[in-house]
Amino acid sequence: MVPYSENASNTDDKSNSHPPFRNPNFEHRSIVSSKKKVWRGLKQIVALERAATWPPDAVLYSSIDAPPPFKPAKRYSDISGLPALYTDPMTKLRYANAEEFARIRKLPMDIVSGLLELRKASSIVG
């Protein structure tokens, strides 16, 4: 199924008239018609780059990722943005005072999960 649509999009590309300055015979080296996914994503590219053999002092894209913070992260209320001292054990949302707590308990599920997703805390593991 997928290769078919892939082909379709390829023919589409060709039907769009190429500008004159483009080499009419040029085809991307990476494109193999049988392959489903042609272009690698950044993660794949970086993993590939890391897997190759390099001299020991080589600096790669993946080697300049910033380190984790050295200070504990500050906690802010999920509904007002104020510094939060408390966490609701039921929804796992953070809140700053009693009013906010009352509001949190009234929030529908989708908003709660959306707020947790915002700080990537919605996974059960975390």
């Binding site: 910033a66 380190p67 913070p69 050295f70 200070k71 992260a73 700080r119 990537k120 805390a121």
Partner: peptide, 16 residues
């Protein structure tokens, strides 16, 4: 950390 990223912020990184 506000967007759930485990990396240090700008100030932390400059210090590092």
């Amino acid at each position: 950390s506000l967007v759930g990223l485990g990396q240090g912020g700008l100030a932390d990184t400059i210090a590092y």
